[in-house]
């Protein structure tokens, strides 16, 4: 078990990077996902088609493929995702500002993929808003945008919190793939390094590393899951 102590900085740094990646991707996924959800329910057909095809595309292809498209495709489009070097933000999340773009590529891949599921979660939230609400809003003359902004979306967000939380949990776990697609130093790439390649020529036994890496993910996923359970239960009590 002493690999945990001996290599603690390795796990700590790995955890921090995975956390940063998850945090930023969650924001990205929520932004893009909301946009896609709005597109999907828009009155303008081409926008609706766009939203629907987006969801159908990303829901049905493997995340690894999305990673390849981003990692290989973006440089071909002449971009190294420099738009993510957001001033201020790159002071907190230092890997954002660094020239090596695989951190930014990973954020983009994870956000794009997860956005499809965020959209679906939001839609389920919108479905949960009683149709009388939207009808009442319309009858007092609110437009589509106003209706969405003031009546439907605020309620939908609340109804969608639990499914959204589950999507984010899944995304945190999916971030492990980044370590196999060029990102150096996250939990999964560190785990693989410790077990098979070794650090300074020393490899570590499998089980302790497995437990340490798992702990790194569980620290993020389990509390979030418990929180969601709590919200769901509270709601069920209220509904009764």
């Amino acid at each position: 078990m002493n690999v945990l102590w001996e290599q603690f900085p390795v796990f700590r740094d790995g955890f921090l990077l995975t956390f940063q990646l998850s945090f930023l991707s969650a924001i990205g996924a929520l932004l893009v996902g909301t946009l896609v959800a709005v597109l999907r329910i828009s009155p303008v057909p081409p926008l609706r088609w766009l939203g629907t095809s987006y969801v159908n595309l990303f829901r049905n292809i493997p995340l690894t493929a999305v990673f390849v498209f981003v990692v290989v495709g973006l440089p071909l489009l002449g971009s190294s995702a420099d738009f993510l070097k957001i001033p201020g933000l790159d002071q907190i999340f230092t890997r954002l500002g660094i020239d090596l773009p695989y951190f930014r590529f990973s954020i983009i891949a994870l956000s794009l993929y997860t956005a499809a599921f965020v959209c679906e979660a939001l839609r389920s939230g919108i479905n949960a808003v009683p149709s009388g609400q939207a009808e009442a809003a319309r009858s007092i003359g609110l437009t589509f945008t106003q209706n969405l902004r003031f009546i439907v979306l605020p309620q939908a967000w609340r109804a969608a919190i639990v499914p959204l939380g589950s999507v984010i949990i899944a995304m945190i776990k999916n971030s492990a793939i980044a370590g196999f697609m060029g990102l150096y130093g996250d939990l999964s790439s560190r785990g693989q390094e410790l077990v098979s390649a070794g650090v300074n020529g020393v490899t570590y036994p499998l089980i302790p590393v497995f437990i340490a890496i798992s702990l790194g993910f569980l620290i993020m996923t389990v509390p979030l899951g418990l929180l969601l359970d709590r919200i769901e239960k509270n709601r069920m009590v209220k509904a009764r």
Binding site: K173, I177, S188, Q192, S214, F217, L218, T221, G225
Partner: peptide
Amino acid sequence: EFFRGIPVVITIF
């Protein structure tokens, strides 16, 4: 909770 909370990639690895 354990196996639901960790990535499938890690489980497979």
